[in-house]
Design a protein around this nucleic acid. Structure first.
Lengths: 237, 237
DNA sequence: CCGCACGTTCCGTCCAGCGAAACGTCCGGC
DNA sequence: GCCGGACGTTTCGCTGGACGGAACGTGCGG
């Protein structure tokens, strides 16, 4: 695991020496461990180094939570995408972050740093705020305790303001974000709930801040999220 | 790895005892190993057992091959989906199988057994035949050597017939499948190539055998595959 | 009340993983 | 051409931690 987590997004492939350096694992040990991992196709040896392999991809897709959610969500996300042609996200909460589970990149939208399997802080993203608003209070406390760092001039960094914002989101059932995580980008999000009291995921539409009509899109996002919630309830009941 | 691969698709969660039984690993050993894996969020302990966790999902998404391919392919798949509303697949070759990397399930289409991260034999699927036709001859030999088992009455099980079919596919640039893997289902597929001589992936459209107009859809699939090929060449050049 | 299967803990044995050292190879610099 | 450095690979003796049999607590069904 130490070896595998040494791979960061963007590392296409690493050399044995680089892996040994990053992990602190002596070269012969790393060599042996990687040879074993290669037998399982978790890593693949290429001419110029070592890269994460297809076996890992296959295993990751077996994670039941993400899989069930993705399959149930696919039609709703497709509808949203077709109606708007903007970037559509599906995310789940994890600790103080959100993890993206699905992404349909919009045609004319901005290049967004999000990535399936990638993380973003919850407090400054649409999906994050939607899930914070409809999540357990402890999670909000943890997020505040972890610290709200200013990512753009419009990031909300005051815990009080964040709480107000979450209250508004609870009223409306929709969260918005205007250049709080990246300049020039805005987003509308709505929480997804299964039978339980808390949000288990969130759906969002993201686009250029000056062109995305969040008021107009809010009902669509909310409808998709409610539809997915209904399917999840039916599935677990 | 032995523990992780004991999870099969469909296993939402397994008990410790069940895992020990499947793997042959004694219960205390499995218990200890799982505790360690849980620290990395590779598995999660639930009230009623153990399930694969989000850490595994995140790691799997770092596999560079699948990731780059998916990101490059997303717009083309979205276009195909929007134009047809049928199920769209993106797959890569692995050994004698194909592994699905992306799937957009069609609205009115049949429930298809395919799954992102799932496998199917190459010889009886559209994407598989497309990649066999434009892949190294050794791969075809391996597929034939592994045996062609009859999955439906229309499965091609004679190596000679398969070779003929592949020749036709090479001419047309498009592969079709009519109820060769599952009764009632048909599919059109086209190979994706990067700079190299062989296909690195394939795109397909799948639907009801009696309703899918493969002749009409073939140009669309081929165009999408060629477009993706061009993007891949540009990316690697 | 008992029996069974489950998850968990304990602890002595023992061997497999460890990693320093050494080796073969391929570069780029001088 | 020669050398220094970095890379991947192999060897091998030591040892520390993984291993798993045994035992324990618990909850369920008969």
């Amino acid at each position: 695991m130490t070896l595998l987590t040494a791979f960061r997004p963007g590392d296409a492939e690493l050399t044995l020496a680089e892996l040994a350096r990053r992990t602190g694992i002596p070269k012969p040990t790393a060599h042996r461990l990687l040879a074993e991992l290669a037998l399982w196709n978790v890593v693949e040896r290429t001419s110029g180094g070592i890269r994460l392999g297809m076996g890992l991809f296959e295993l990751g897709q077996l994670a039941p939570l993400q899989r069930g959610l993705r399959e149930a969500a696919a039609p709703f996300l497709a509808d949203l995408f077709e109606a708007t042609h903007e970037t559509v996200h599906l995310a789940v909460p994890d600790g103080v972050d959100v993890v993206y589970v699905q992404k349909l990149p919009g045609r004319h939208g901005p290049r967004i740093g999000s990535r399936v399997g990638g993380r973003m802080p919850a407090y400054c993203t649409g999906v994050g705020k939607a899930m914070l608003a409809f999540g357990p209070p402890e999670r909000l406390a943890a997020v505040v305790a972890a610290g709200l760092t200013r990512r753009t001039p419009r990031t909300v960094v005051a815990p009080g303001l964040l709480a107000d914002e979450l209250a508004r989101i609870r009223e409306r059932g929709v969260a918005e974000e205007h250049e709080e995580s990246s300049v020039g980008i805005a987003c509308v999000a709505a929480p997804v709930r299964d039978g339980g009291p808390h949000a288990v995921a969130a759906i969002s539409i993201t686009g250029w801040a000056n062109r995305l009509d969040t008021a107009r899109l809010a009902p669509a996002v909310r409808t998709a999220a409610l539809g997915l919630s209904r399917v999840l309830r039916a599935g677990t009941a």
